[in-house]
């Protein structure tokens, strides 16, 4: 589904990714771990198409299409979802407005008519229950005045409503208490299916106790330096990253 080959990327003239390879097939969950500054967030941002990154070499393909040639909104319509580490507050644009605009953009992209407003509300309310978001919050501005945990749950709600094919979660677990972490994990697990793939970008092993990955990769100095199964995450938790960075 996702093929990253020899990816080099710069931020503000500084090399961050230096020849990264990654292959993700439908149905798989991959965890990308690594120390701060290793390029984890850069990788997820480059795949989602965020601005501010210069790709100097390599390729990213999604279902055989050149992803780097597409603007971010088209990537989203193709089924890529990035859960932000720091979700943005948008006062005055309600959560419902955002969700409806996003859903209808996808439908338009696929040549489908707009969603019926009644069906839309029922669908969103049903999804909101899964992440324990009060329906009243849906009418409030996007993330406006939300706590850190509420913002992360709201990212998961968007993901549940939009049903992407590739879910990229950029440090979604950071700053969450155990209850919120469980809700977030339940949301991710609810979408796990043979047609979907997940990329969990995380610093800690904690989330992986609740979302079992198929593969774990360690990113250091802009490349994947080690790949393995779930046991690699536990090893990292015990030993830290130092032994791999030195390697």
């Amino acid at each position: 589904m996702l093929e990253v080959k020899g990816l080099h990327a710069k931020v503000e003239g500084k090399d961050i990714l230096k020849g990264l390879d990654l292959s993700v097939r439908a149905g798989e969950v991959h965890a990308i771990m690594g120390p701060n500054g290793s390029g984890k967030s850069t990788l997820s941002h480059v795949i989602a198409g965020r601005e501010g990154y210069e790709i100097t070499a390599g390729s990213v393909q999604f279902d055989g299409r050149d992803l780097l040639a597409l603007p971010p909104e088209t990537r989203a319509c193709e089924g890529i979802f990035l859960g932000f580490q720091y979700p943005v507050e948008i006062p005055g644009v309600s959560n419902l407005t955002l969700l409806k605009a996003a859903l209808n953009a996808r439908r338009k992209y696929r040549g489908q008519p707009e969603i019926d407003p009644g069906d839309f509300l029922a669908w969103v309310r049903d999804r909101a229950r899964l992440v324990k978001i009060d329906p009243k919050m849906l009418s409030r501005g996007v993330n406006e005045g939300f706590s850190g945990g509420e913002k992360k749950r709201n990212e998961i709600l968007q993901m549940l409503v939009l049903e992407p094919r590739l879910m990229i979660l950029d440090e979604t677990d950071s700053g969450l208490d155990i209850d919120a972490l469980k809700i977030v994990a339940d949301g991710i697990n609810a979408l796990r299916s043979p047609e979907r793939a997940t990329l969990l970008v995380t610093h800690y092993q904690r989330l992986l106790d609740y979302v079992q990955p198929d593969y774990v990769h360690v990113l250091a100095r802009g490349r994947i330096v080690r790949s393995g199964g779930p046991e690699l995450a536990r090893e990292l938790e015990q030993k830290g990253y130092g032994w791999l960075e030195a390697a």
Binding site: A48, G49, R50, E51, P71, P72, E73, A76, C77, L82, F84, P87, V88, I90, V93, T97, L98, A101, A102, A105, R106, Y109, V142, Q158, L162
Partner: peptide, 18 residues
């Protein structure tokens, strides 16, 4: 905010209008 809306699939002109 514009970038966030686009990342959810909303085209730039519509994101600006929102």
């Amino acid at each position: 905010a514009l970038e966030y809306l686009r990342s959810r699939g909303v085209p730039p002109a519509e994101a600006r209008a929102l």
